[in-house]
Each structure stands twice: as C-alpha cells, then as structure tokens.
Amino acid sequence: MTEPTSASGRPLVAYPGEDTVDPSVAGNALAIRGLQKRYGDKAAVDNITLDVPVGSFFGLVGPNGAGKTTTLSMVTGLLRPDAGRIYIDGADVWRDPVRAKARMGVLPDGLRLFERLSGRELLMYMGRFRGIPVAEVRSRADELLKVLDLADAGNKLVADYSTGMRKKITLAAALLHSPRVLLLDEPLEAVDPVSARVIRTVLTRFTQGGGTVILSSHVMALVEELCDHVAVMARGQIIAAGPVAQVRGGSATLDDAFMHLVGADELAEGGLSWLRSSQD
C-alpha cells in the first residue's frame, strides 16, 4: 500500500504502525492495547491494556496523578501516545480518526470552550461543523438544552456559565451527534447537586439506550452508584478491572477496596499537634 503524503510532500502520520485491527477488540466500545505515555523519566501511562464492553457504564478511578486524564486524552485524540493502540467501537483512534471521532462524544476536564458563544450558538456551531442539517441541529440543540436544564441560559455566553452549567453544555455538545461512546473526564467535579443529578440522569438514559459511558472520577461512592464496570489506575497502570462487584471483592465498599488496591490503608498518624489550640 502506498503511504499517503501531505501537501508538503512528507508522509502523513503513520502512527501507530501496522494498518491491521486487533481481532480481540470486537464487542468492545473501547479497547486499549499496550498504551504508553512518558514525560521524561516518568511513565504517566505505563503499558496499559483495557476492554470496555459495549453498553456498559464504566468508571476509571484512581488517585490524583494516576494517569486517568492522560489516558482519556490519548483515547480522545487530544494527546499523542508514545506506543499502543486505541479502538473506539472497532475504529482505531489514531489510524482511522474519521470513524473513531464520529463515534465518540467527549467531555474533557479543565479545557476551555468557545467562551464568547452562547450555549445555543455553541451547539449550533458544533452541529453544523459536523455536517448535520441545520433544522436537525436546531431541534437537537433545543431538546438538549431543555433536558439539561439550560433552556433559560441558552442565550447566555459560555464565559458567564457556572461550573455546573459548563459541564452540562459540554455534555450537550458531546451528545449532539449521537455518539456510541461517551468519554467523560471528571464530569461531576465541582458541580452543584442539582446539576449533578441532571447529568447522572442523562448518562443513565444514554446507557439504557445502548450507549457506552466511560467516566473518570476519584469519588468512589459516585462510581459505585453509577457504574457496572470499573478499572482502578495507580502510578500509570491498571491494577484492577472488571465488574464493580468483582473489583470490590470482599471489601464493604468500593472505597475500601480502592484504598487497599492503591496501598493507602494506613494513613499517617501523629504530627499536627499544634492544630489542637487556635491562635488568639
């Protein structure tokens, strides 16, 4: 096969190598094989392999710095891996980005939006950029704004949205093109309880309709309540993965199991004695 070339004459990105699909990825909404990312000497993601079944509500948990955001960034095509392959619904994210990106909806953590567009304008723009007919985009945008309780704020600039509203409008943008897989990085962090309830309801309905939700979080109670599958990450590696009940094992809660898995059973005691008395 002739290597495609760019207008500048250089070969186009051939990452990650062979143009073959690993047959073991079939039936998975997300399949990761040998994914690696290093920053200098530190392995942020250390050769992970993971399968997320179609239709599952999947939680990716781990302490801060475990590699969750790095993993999701590579899965969504926003960060180039050093090695490994990623398949979304059978499409290689880095080899076949057209199909992969059409099948995923993304809610990243900490990235800006088009701040000077209103919520409705943002949805209209994204829908039309994706090539969805205007009338269809308008109809979907109105419905999403209504369901996500943003109808009254639809004409307000995103720059003036609260954290909860920003998460909701990003979720609306992620759902707009009806993806098969939703990839959400800390979707409920710093979100007020009302917005959190709305987001959880929408996500649950999405999985009930056959979609797959993959979310990262470090709130164990949330993952235990929402997810049917979970993977635990620590120091860039997957240290446990499977149905929630299986990962929890003999522990009373997922939180206990998590503490045991990441080796944080024994919290440091002693010190801070000066906290017992306050200053005048």
Binding site: L12, G77, P97, V98, K101, R112
Partner: peptide, 16 residues
C-alpha cells in the same frame, strides 16, 4: 485564539 478551546475542533475533525 480560543486557547485550549481548540479541542472542540480537534474532536470533530478527522480528515484533511
């Protein structure tokens, strides 16, 4: 010009 808002374009664009 949109800072990290560029991600919105990146997740929607797959081909040249």
């Amino acid at each position: 010009l949109d800072g990290s808002g560029l991600w919105l374009h990146l997740v929607m664009s797959g081909d040249r």
